[in-house]
Amino acid sequence: MAIRVGIPRALLYYRFYPLWKTFFTELGAEVIVSEPTTQEIFRKGLKKFIGDTCLPMKLVFGHVITLADKVDYLFIPRLVSIEKDTYLCPHFAGLPDVLRAIMPDLPPILDTYFNVRKKGVTMRSIYEAGKRFDKNPRRIYLAYQKAQEVYKKFLERIRDGITPQEAIQAFDGEEVPPVKERKERLNIALVGNPYTVYDPFSSLNIIQKLRKLEARIYTSEMIPDETIEEGIRALSKRIYWTFGKETVGAAFHYLDSKEIDGLIYIISFECGPDSLLKEIVDDKARKNKKVAYMSLVIDEHTGETGIDTRLDAFVEMIKRRRRSKKMEGEKNGK
């Protein structure tokens, strides 16, 4: 029987799942992903978590608990840096240790160390991740190459205009309606940490809600890295948080572009970097009179009235702005 590797549907699952899954599958392992977040999963995690932290970290605990008796290994990489010159939040680097300390009975954790800040992904960390499934470094490397190819295609699909959530569904063989066939009248950019924005539980289904309001969604993954860098060039200092950089870069790009009618920035309550970066985005958005802007702070609430009221008002505001601009245009035209 194949060795079973568990991947919690949390945190960087929302960015790297196709890469990770392909890698382990190529090496003959069976990949098991936890179910989509539910209230029950959240509560399970909350019970175990010691101290207070952000919602995404609480959620990963619940996912790990539900996977524990279904797998031989848990894949919880020790992520320090996943990109040159930037870092992830320290919670990521400590996660494998914290999990082990709180839940000693978990299956062994594959806590491959990733720190690519200086040299990029090293052969060593790839080998570390794969050695339990195949001792042959060459085969491990080939599996990694294959995984990278698949991952590249996954990223390309998102650039075509589907959301990362949908790209993951497509990767898993589900059908995703083509962008062209959708009836969407507004263009709204949605930025924030991927594990908050794309987990429907955390974001209170914001993508589906916006689509119902006839909005087309734009995300940070849909724009190339260079554009993101371009977006934040004007800042006096580099942003050294990976997702912070991406979020602010994308927000700046969308605010300056003429593509969108509105920008929504989702932040987690208790996220340190978010609380700082929100000020930078707020400031830029305030100076832009053309694009509607709103930030939403999410935490553990399940009542959806609050978010519904804000989204309704946001979309209506955009529609009314457009109408008044059109009327003004007609007046001036005469």
Binding site: T309, M317, R321, S324
Partner: peptide
Amino acid sequence: DGVVVDFAM
């Protein structure tokens, strides 16, 4: 100019 441009709750 009679149009909502921003709001907060």
